[in-house]
């Protein structure tokens, strides 16, 4: 059933801007830009999808199908994970391009390197944890969910990008071209992946519980 629900998510629920926003990974080519912002657009696509779902009674339609309430939530999370993975995968060629051809450092913040991907994973995990915590308590309150999640991500981006100017470790080790300080960057990448998994799994567990109790 999850496979069918995922199909429903992609064919009926997904907002048309979601695949278009993947192309915004190309923002990593901008010479001077806070690159973590490029990964925020996936969150925007998730917000649009949930907003669009509210206007099109997506939850009511899905609950009438022969599926459980729990699977409705899980399918939405799988779609989100798919979207976020796609965002990272589309970003990779641009990271490689920045590391091999357009090698100028990014004066605005973090360079497009492996540590950036690690930070992007943390950022997306944080978005999932904040957004779905509110959304699945009340699926009507999509705006409130986005406001809190957007706020949390904004603070994260500000802190992460500012740290490249303030913290010596970030400035001298993480905000450098690959493969310099590869071990530290791989550690950040692994920590990002771990944080993403932990936060997303936690968000899904809570969402299943909240959605089960919610009156629709």
């Amino acid at each position: 059933m999850i496979r069918l629900l995922l199909r429903k998510e992609l064919h009926l629920a997904l907002h048309p801007t979601a695949p278009l926003f993947l192309a915004l990974s190309a923002m990593l080519l901008i010479p001077s830009y806070p690159y973590l912002v490029a990964f925020f657009y996936t969150g925007l696509a998730i917000f649009f999808t949930c907003l669009n779902g509210r206007e099109n009674q997506d939850v009511a339609y899905t609950l009438l199908l022969p599926v459980s309430k729990e699977d409705v939530v899980r399918a939405r999370f799988f779609m989100v994970i798919l979207l976020e993975t796609a965002q990272l995968l589309t970003a990779l060629p641009f990271v490689i391009l920045r590391q091999t051809v357009l090698t100028e450092p990014n004066p605005a913040g973090m360079d497009a390197n492996l540590a950036l991907i690690g930070l992007a994973l943390m950022q997306m995990g944080l978005f999932n944890l904040t957004f779905f915590r509110i959304y699945y308590r009340n699926v009507i309150r999509v705006g409130a969910a986005f406001l809190w999640a957007g706020g949390a991500v904004f603070l994260f981006i500000t802190a992460a990008e500012a740290s490249t100017h303030i913290l010596p470790f970030v400035r001298d080790v993480l905000d450098t071209p690959d493969p310099r300080h590869l071990t530290a960057k791989l550690a950040v990448l692994a920590a990002g992946a771990g944080a993403y998994i932990l936060m997303t799994v936690q968000a899904m567990r809570r969402a299943v519980k909240d959605f089960r109790r919610q009156d629709l």
């Binding site: 429903k8 206007e55 099109n56 997506d58 339609y61």
Partner: peptide, 13 residues
Amino acid sequence: FYRGKRLSAITAV
């Protein structure tokens, strides 16, 4: 439901 989708698309899902 899905006011902008064709009936054929809704049925196929």
